[in-house]
Amino acid sequence: MSDSPFLIVLFAIIGGALRVSTPFMFVALGECLTEKSGRVNLGLEGTLVLGAMTAYATSYHTGSPWLGVLAAGFAGVFLGGIHGYVCKLPKVNDIAIGIAMMLFGTGLAFFFGKAYIQPSAPRLGSFSLGEWTGNPQIATALQVNQLLIVGIIVAFVMAWAFANTKWGLIVRMTGDSAPAAKAMGVSVDLVRFLATAAGGFLAGVGGAFLSLFYPGSWNQGLSSGQGLMAVALVIFARWKPLQCVVAALLFGAAGAVGPALQSVGITQGYYFFNAAPYILTLLIMIASAGSKQAMRDVPGELSITK
């Protein structure tokens, strides 16, 4: 291994992509599970923020960041559970409830989070994917957190479970045709409730990553739309868990280019790079919405693509 600056920057982008992509990955996987069951939860932006705050506060009080991750997951279950429960009532619109939950979750997080902006909580540890190179700079650049590995494992488990288990089949059937699920004696409402709550858990964990690892602090500007972008990513990923991981990595890379260029002195496009992920998401939505491929893969009960 040489010490060429090019390689260092390259590894900085890769490492940055891996770090930035983790919350995207968790939110996208959570939304993927929920949408597979036939429901849309647009409120995951609120879940992400509330998860970040809960994780930070729990870590601060207990001294254990992993307890914080767990608490963030349960904060996600709380919001997801409300969403999952009220959407079963007739005439309640899941997209509108999502907007309301986004405002509610953000409000709760800012309300309780005000006390935790100053104090410093224990963060999650890290390990390096670059130790084998023997180059300390590369080893530092490739610092990642265990949650990245957990997320990838979750994606593989979800992909396997959708294809090979009874539970996976039930979720897919509920998402494709509620009457068919009913005919099989499956409680559509229960499946969707559980899928939304579990999706909320994953999104909450994604929030914990934001406040406890990267960027690694709690403030009100911690997430500005990552949760929403991750929801949009699921359409791009065609409701496939493994493609959610790929899409999240792509977004991580897009998000890591700006800071990486800044670190070598290119600061001109700073505000452009701020807006770039939103523009990229919109372009991806334009490209993937309405395509024949997407129409073939979409869960039949989903209201978002109609």
Binding site: K91, L103, T106, G107
Partner: peptide, 16 residues
């Protein structure tokens, strides 16, 4: 914000 979010959720549930 909390009051508004809560009101919004309750309002949408009242649609039923």
């Amino acid at each position: 914000l909390v009051l508004q979010g809560l009101t919004f959720v309750v309002l949408l549930v009242s649609e039923t």
